[in-house]
């Protein structure tokens, strides 16, 4: 994991570990939107994203009293926890879909599909959901979470070159899937 010098959250975590209510509020304000976004982009499901964010914080509360600065940045650790929780859910989804394949969704007439295409946000979310998990993770970490390539590669356990390849393939696939938005 990337250590990257001093941890900007270190003092806050120490106070959280002592049960300081102001520090708890501050940490939630600082991290919850990021964790919720991470889970939402990975899972494309608002309710599941909330569950993941809540569980990640529960683990943070357990960890805070004994948090050892220097092993990893708290933000990196929290990302890893949330990503693991997301992958658990993605795995369960695959197991369910393999044992009980969903019925084909009727996309409706072509005119309706054109109407749907106007909602860029929904189209992008759907295209993101169709990406292979690791490509989606790379795009989420670098574009939405704004991690550096070194931080994202360390978090994913891959080399910087491998991350670059995942990103390039993921973004090319997204561009192809969304090409009609630019016509």
């Amino acid at each position: 994991m990337a250590t990257g010098g001093s941890d900007p959250d270190q003092e806050l975590i120490a106070r959280v570990g002592r049960g300081d209510p102001a520090a708890i509020q501050a940490l939630v304000a600082r991290k919850l939107p990021r964790m919720l976004q991470l889970a939402h982009r990975m899972l494309n499901d608002a309710a599941e994203a909330e569950d993941v964010a809540q569980e990640a914080f529960l683990r943070a509360w357990k960890q805070a009293p004994t948090w050892q600065p220097g092993a990893a940045r708290f933000d990196t650790w929290l990302h890893r926890v949330a990503l693991n929780l997301c992958y658990d859910r993605l795995r369960r989804r695959r197991e369910v879909s393999m044992s009980d394949p969903p019925e084909q969704v009727d996309m409706g007439p072509a005119a309706d599909r054109g109407l749907m295409a106007r909602d860029t946000g929904l189209r992008v979310s759907a295209a993101m959901a169709d990406l292979p998990d690791r490509q989606r993770e790379a795009v989420v970490l670098c574009h939405y979470q704004e991690l550096t390539n070194i931080e994202a590669a360390a978090l994913m356990g891959v080399s910087v070159d491998a991350l670059e390849s995942l990103l390039a393939r993921g973004r090319r696939a997204l561009r192809a899937a969304l090409a009609d938005l630019r016509e």
Partner: peptide
């Protein structure tokens, strides 16, 4: 262009 599309996704608010 792709950056703009990616940013069109609504950010979830807790």
């Amino acid at each position: 262009d792709l950056d703009e599309d990616l940013d069109a996704v609504e950010r979830p608010s807790p």
